[in-house]
Amino acid sequence: MEVQWWADFLSAVLRAATPLVFCALGVLVCGRAGILNIGVEGSMLVGALAAVLAAVYSGDPWMGVVGALGVGLAAGLVLTLLTVYLPTDQVVTGIAFNLVCLGVTSFIYKLLVLGGVQLMAPALRAAQDAEGAVSLAGLAAAVTPLTWIALFLVAVSWVFLFRTGPGLLWRSVGESAWASHAAGLNVFRVRTVAVVVGSLLSALGGAALTLGWVPTFTDNMTMGRGFIALAAVYFGRWHPGLALAACLLFGAGEALAFRAQALGTGLNPYYYLMLPYVVTLMAVAAMGRSVEPRDTGKPYARR
């Protein structure tokens, strides 16, 4: 195949994987501290809307990123209150949170579009298009800055969780909150920071979907990408590098599904369109059982 085909394909893979990588990291940092972040889809959705609105009103896509972070912080505080301090069942709360976010974003979106606001935001563009991405430097310039931020954060999270002292303490809260408490750790504080950071990352995933890919918003725009990120974390055995690989695999499946239609084999398009899901399922099956941190999903309350 032509070099150009590969350049287009690789830039499409990175484009599709970037929102997933942010969200997967959001799930991972929460899970490592013992919080199952089912609300990742909702945080991603509110981040997507906030990013578009902030970018539309300010005219600057980076202000959109700031807007997404602001809303991600608010979502994180709400989730912290519910899952860390009350603490409610994390799965039920996460599902309810997703449904609330879906309703709220659709409501706000409807109000705005009926009010005549044009929701086509300024996008974070790549330095050049995929036609020039025939070298590594070209490929680097053919993706948006958010892709590089996502890859950088994967490295940062790996170093933090597996190569630093605070990362070890963080993981110990996820493995055994009571043992951590007995060792003098403030479990509430660690989990609060984890949920807020997780929500910020998920909201950044929403910003990557809108400002970095399609700079507009529609109802339920995330279309389950938060849950795919959740699956990527399980596939990646709660490790940032493997979670990144899962996101790239899913992105590759999606990019391949679209390109396969161009081959004109006469097969029903659905065969191609299920490719990313089939590839992901096969990969998950090949990886075997993934064991989450032992206290993930378990509420922690002071006795």
């Binding site: 287009d8 499409a12 484009r15 599709a16 979907l209 890919w213 399609v214 507009t216 529609t218 109802d219 339920n220 725009m221 279309m223 999606e254 990019a255 679209f258 390109r259 239609q261 161009a262 398009p269 659905y270 369109l273």
Partner: peptide, 20 residues
């Protein structure tokens, strides 16, 4: 060129197919 997205709503997928 005739391509199908597989749904009516996923904006990102629509963008990818049209871009292709």
């Amino acid at each position: 060129l005739t391509y199908f997205v597989g749904d009516w709503v996923d904006v990102a997928k629509h963008r990818e197919l049209a871009a292709l």
